[in-house]
Nucleic acid binder design. Structure first.
Lengths: 150, 150
DNA sequence: GTTAACGTTTACGTAAACGTCAATGTGGGT
DNA sequence: ACCCACATTGACGTTTACGTAAACGTTAAC
């Protein structure tokens, strides 16, 4: 029910109040998400994350962590950082104004459509490759070879 | 049986035997797929398509067309041209050798796994955005505003 | 015979998303 | 006081996927 990044979660109270209070170092997040610190700083330069600062050091909250996670998923989905920023910004804008809400609704729907298109592409490729898998496996069996096995 | 793109459909005989014989100019394909000729030539430089030549001019077969279509879908899915080339090459390799078939099977399965991972990412985002859509629409209705409507 | 539409190669330019130094700072152990 | 791991800010380099311009050939129309 509760989403993490854009659709910010309502502060969970029962479990993990400790987790939601945790702060992370840049290296910690880098390790966890298998990116370099350079990458995380770059995202900051691009306005995608804004960690608190203790002097010069960056301190990442659980929210920042979720944001990063969200950014990376966006990337895996093939969105550019600019697009991801737009989507993230969508939620941090005044959500009370009527115009903003209608806009948010509109953009969400557009984005969903885009995602559904991608899903169609994905399903098509998955289908094709499963076809290949089937045929090749069958052919191997016909030749008396076990398709499984090293 | 005859492969056009990777997993080509079985050659339909009843309809469109004319279509399978058609040849296309570079501009024709460019228009159809909404890319520039430059792009198509670039793909050729990268070894992704190899149209016949009539002197200098490129002549694209239906197979070439299907290949291009496949390439573009790969792109939409976020694969690099190098990855797409690998996948395309997979099918044009000797498919009779046992080793090649096992390899083909292995790679196909790996690719399917990758696609399934992406699909999970996709479904997650779709879910989040549908959540947003629901909430915002509900909020709008609560304020007595019709979520639909310009 | 020249204009237009289309094609060709060669070559340089560019935006995105980081990688890779280099120089410097900072906090904690010993 | 010294070292070490980790952090910081530039600044420049790199890869990918084309865009853009130059300079030229080919065919069809007028």
């Amino acid at each position: 029910m509760s989403a993490a990044a854009p659709p910010a979660a309502s502060a969970a109270k029962s479990p993990a109040i400790r987790d939601s209070q945790r702060i992370y170092s840049i290296a910690e997040l880098a390790r966890e998400f298998a990116v370099t610190s350079r990458t995380i700083r770059f995202y900051e330069d691009e306005g995608l994350i804004k960690p608190r600062r203790q002097g010069l050091q960056r301190l990442y909250s659980a929210g920042d962590r979720a944001r990063l996670s969200w950014i990376l998923r966006g990337k895996r989905l093939g969105f550019t950082l600019a697009e991801i920023k737009e989507l993230l910004d969508l939620y941090n804008v005044d959500r009370t104004g009527l115009q903003q809400m209608r806009e948010l609704l509109r953009r969400s729907r557009l984005h969903i459509e885009e995602l559904e298109r991608r899903k169609a592409d994905l399903d098509a490729q998955i289908g094709e490759f499963k076809d290949v898998e089937m045929h090749v496996a069958a052919e191997l069996r016909q030749r008396g070879v076990d398709p499984e096995g090293d």
